[in-house]
Design a binder for these strands. Structure first.
Length: 564
RNA sequence: GCGCUUGUAGCUCAGCAGGAUAGAGCAACGGAUUUCUAAUCCGUGGGCCGGGGGUUCGAAUCCCUCCAGGCGCACCA
């Protein structure tokens, strides 16, 4: 934040430490009574060989006070700074007013390219709650990076190739009904897929048939390929329904099949570098000196694997987009897989190996155990979204029956609740799916934030004054007001931190904090009051708050209805 | 067995490039609405920050070790 930099500047002049270091040391006291910012002097004690309390006192006595600091106190080894609340409010709100919906954005990225590989569902398999995380985390990272000036490329690396399609074709040939597939494609595909596994246990020849069909696909057989294409189209149509609901877009849908004709070259490249060794009939890159199992490039039967495709895709993306960073938003189960093939990229001599990042996230399971489509232990995302929307609609009918376009709002809020629920905690945490938690709209939830925003919008609509350029910071000095403004002031830092850690939850948390502070402010201070100046000042704060909440939600891929 | 990861209130979690008395939400109980949306707000109770060692002026945070859970460990993706 600009203030902290200014403060660090002045401190740096006295403490004789670099501004950055000082700025990192600045902290927020545990209690506002102590001050608004604090500078601990313990560390200086060593270099200056002096009692830290004395140092604190010296700093307090000698520092040139920036204009937004009203007074300075010391307590023990801490120098505590108290804001001039009027100046602080004035400056922060002016900044938000000026930047509008770009508040918190920057050009830090300077147009450098970030590829984000996310979502990547398997074709012909239902989109369940486990697939949601990659989708919403990736989508949010896309927006965060873009907001900070990066050029983002969202890639949906569809699971659209492999033996499972041989199975599907076989199953379709035996039991498929075209009408079912057109009507409810995913469910029909899943049905025949499950049936295939049941039948194959009794009649193993079905497996051979499936392999035969996949071989025909790989050989370019038109019948096999057109069925494959049909399945893929049907699936994509279904996936797009969900992506539409979530408001998620991709720049490319280059799935696994896209790299079929590009892998030979990579295998040759590996060969040329002398990295491939034969092991039990398969081709692998030995990684034993890096304490990892070998990375398999070709199976005994000569077909390629996941790693082969990932390596190929990475090289293709580097050549095509010249990315500065490539993020893989994939569950943590695959940690080893990524470490392995990142190492292979390094061994191949590509100096950009350190620009590849696995962004792992925790598992979703059910109380009964891990998700398993085949065992029927699965919750379809569409059902979750639908239930959340239905429940929202019930609540709206009860609480706000006069609301127009109820259905639209219910969608925004219901889906927002599900998305927010997935983004609020650190990505790495496992989630045990619970309807109670997903459908809870109280407290630290998406609807809570949206509600705060709607309240703010409602005030703006009802106000008798309008916002002028004048902020009236001298009227915005109460405790609750300062708390809110300080959170607004620190919002840009939260976005930076989220970007640096590839962690959308940081934005989600901060946005919750703002909503909370706003609700507190709302409770304690009437906005629409007779005093015109006061009304205008508070209105400005309300306007700024709504603006920032909207940005925060937007970065999470969540909408902010004006009424709910 | 080895590797990655998690362990903080009854539950879900934040805090973890060390800093002042460990914070939220949910659940429970008790309050607040003739005023801008009560999907809200206020209050009460609830904690050997997994255990033990170490580093430090200072450790939930860093290091070591142990314990417990999750995940992974070549022909699936």
């Amino acid at each position: 934040m600009i203030f902290d930099i200014q403060l660090a500047d002045e401190l740096s002049a006295i403490a004789r430490l670099p501004v950055q270091e000082i700025s990192d040391m600045l902290e927020i006291p545990p209690d506002r009574q102590l001050g608004d910012r604090a500078f601990p002097c313990f560390k200086l004690a060593k270099t200056m060989r002096k009692n830290p309390q004395l140092i604190a006192q010296e700093i307090a006595d000698n520092i040139k006070k920036p204009n937004f600091i009203e007074r300075i106190e010391t307590k023990g080894a801490y120098v505590n700074f108290f804001f001039n609340r009027a100046v602080f409010a004035q400056t922060v709100l002016e900044d938000i007013l000026n930047k509008g919906e770009r508040y918190g954005s920057s050009d830090k990225g300077n147009g450098s390219v970030v590829c984000i590989d996310f979502s990547a569902p398997n074709i012909a398999k239902p989109f369940h709650i486990g697939h949601l995380r990659s989708t919403v985390i990736g989508n949010s990272l896309y927006k965060i990076y873009e907001f900070l000036g990066y050029k983002c490329i969202g890639i949906n690396h569809l699971g659209d190739w492999g033996t499972q399609f041989g199975k599907l074709i076989t199953a379709y040939k035996h039991w498929g009904i075209k009408d079912d597939l057109e009507k409810e494609p995913i469910k029909a595909l899943l049905d025949i897929y499950v049936k295939f596994h049941d039948e194959a246990e009794k009649d193993p020849s079905l497996e051979d048939e499936a392999r035969m069909w996949f071989k025909r696909m790989e050989d370019g057989d038109e019948e096999a390929l057109s069925l494959w294409r049909w399945f893929k189209d049907l699936s994509l149509r279904e996936f797009n329904k969900i992506y539409d609901m979530l408001g998620v877009k991709f720049d490319y849908y280059t799935g696994e099949s896209f790299y079929n004709d590009k892998m030979d070259r990579v295998v040759e490249l590996l060969q040329g570098k002398g990295l491939l060794t034969e092991s039990q009939g398969a081709l692998v890159v030995d990684l034993s000196q890096y304490d990892m199992p070998p990375c398999m490039i070709k199976k005994t039967d000569g077909t390629t694997l996941y790693a082969t495709r990932d390596i190929t895709a990475a090289i293709y993306r580097k050549e095509t987009f010249d990315f500065d960073k490539c993020l893989y938003v994939v569950a943590y189960q695959q940690d080893l897989h990524f470490r392995q093939w990142f190492k292979v990229i390094e061994l191949m001599g590509f100096d950009w190996y350190d620009k590849l990042f696995h962004v792992p996230f925790g598992m979703v399971s059910m109380e009964e155990g891990t998700l398993s489509t085949r065992k029927g232990r699965v919750v379809f995302l569409e059902d979750v979204l639908q239930k959340a929307v239905d429940r929202t609609l019930d609540i709206i009918k009860e609480k706000n029956p006069g609301l127009e376009n109820k259905e639209d709002v219910a969608k925004q809020v219901g889906i927002g609740a599900v998305v927010f629920h997935d983004l609020i905690n650190n990505r790495i945490k496992d989630i045990v799916f619970s309807w109670d938690q997903v459908l809870n709209f109280d407290g630290e939830t998406g609807p809570y934030v949206q509600y705060a925003h709607a309240r703010a919008m409602s005030i703006l609509a009802k106000a008798t004054q309008t916002i002028t350029g004048k902020v009236g910071g001298d009227l915005l000095t109460e405790d609750e007001t300062l708390e809110l403004i300080d959170l607004l002031a620190r919002f840009p830092e939260a976005i930076e931190a989220a970007c640096q850690a590839n962690e959308p939850s940081i934005v989600a948390r901060h946005t919750i904090d703002i909503a909370q502070a706003f609700n507190k402010f709302y409770k304690n201070h009437m906005v629409i009051v007779d005093d015109d100046e006061m009304q205008r000042a508070r209105l400005t704060l309300v306007y700024a708050t709504a603006q920032v909440i909207r940005i925060g939600l937007g970065l999470l891929g969540i909408q902010a209805p004006a009424k709910m």
